[in-house]
């Protein structure tokens, strides 16, 4: 499909999702709450261990690298500042996004793709059940809630990783570390990270669902769609990240 056609499908899917969320309940077609929670568990809760591990290791390495460089200038006391700003503003949302794309976005594409190949999507349509309302909306809402939530968790765990280095390798007191964090990190840093993760969630789930629903050609098609969904999601996320960072600098 051409880029233009892809974009048209993307906006069409957006419109459909919003229509089912906001207008559906007034037409006797409410959002399937139980399905939303089921997807929240699959997309978010089950991604937590992986997110935690990634964030922890980044917090650790960030503090180690920072300590190494900053101590040469006698500024190792600023390690917490470095960790706070980097994780809250940039790495937290981005890394959690990458983990969720690899773990949950790809799963969504593969699942919807397999359903498409197995005629399940067609069967839903023939039963007068709209696939966007039935399958996409719960995943969309789950992702929109869970990615920011995971990002908050990831931020905390990353900061805890920084603390491990500061506390055990640099003899910095826990109270000092927390105090430095509070001084360095503005609420705005956290909020900008949250806005980012919300935008990322929107992009990731739409790209994943669109790739899955567009599958054709059997098992091979599902594989290709999953690959392209991961690649496109990461690219879209990086571009959005650059744009949002620039926007936040302006304000």
């Amino acid at each position: 499909m051409t880029l233009r056609a892809e974009l048209r499908t993307f906006f069409f899917l957006n419109r459909e999702i919003l229509r089912w969320i906001f207008l559906g309940p007034f037409q006797g077609r409410p959002v399937r709450t139980a399905a939303v929670f089921r997807q929240m568990v699959r997309i978010g809760v089950q991604a937590f261990p992986m997110t935690a591990l990634t964030s922890l290791s980044i917090g650790l390495t960030l503090a180690m690298q920072g300590a190494q460089e900053l101590s040469r200038m006698g500024a190792s006391a600023y390690v917490p500042n470095l960790v706070a700003v980097t994780i809250l503003r940039e790495l937290g949302p981005l890394l959690v996004g990458v983990v969720v794309i690899g773990r949950s976005g790809s799963a969504v594409t593969a699942e919807l793709g397999t359903m498409k190949v197995g005629e399940e999507i067609e069967a839903l349509e023939v039963m007068a059940i709209n696939p966007v309302r039935f399958l996409v909306v719960p995943r969309f809402l789950a992702m929109l809630v869970m990615l920011p939530v995971l990002t908050v968790f990831g931020d905390y765990i990353g900061l805890a990783g920084g603390w491990t280095i500061c506390h055990f390798a640099m003899d910095m007191g826990t109270a000092t570390y927390i105090q430095r964090l509070m001084e360095a990190g503005h609420p705005l840093d956290l909020y900008s990270g949250m806005v980012k993760s919300f935008v990322f969630a929107w992009l990731i789930i739409l790209i994943s669902c669109q790739s899955g629903l567009g599958v054709s050609g059997g098992a091979e098609g599902v594989g290709q769609a999953t690959t392209s969904s991961v690649v496109t999601s990461i690219l879209a996320m990086l571009v959005a990240n650059a744009v949002l960072t620039a926007v936040f600098f302006v304000f």
């Binding site: 397999t114 197995g118 005629e119 399940e120 069967a123 839903l124 039963m127 007068a128």
Partner: peptide, 24 residues
């Protein structure tokens, strides 16, 4: 419509599949 290979939703049980049109 009865599909050639059933086209059942793999994530639901047999009973839930039959109930699906009624529930929805």
């Amino acid at each position: 419509m009865n599909f050639q290979f059933g086209a059942l939703l793999q994530s639901l049980t047999v009973g839930e599949n039959v109930a699906l049109p009624l529930v929805e």
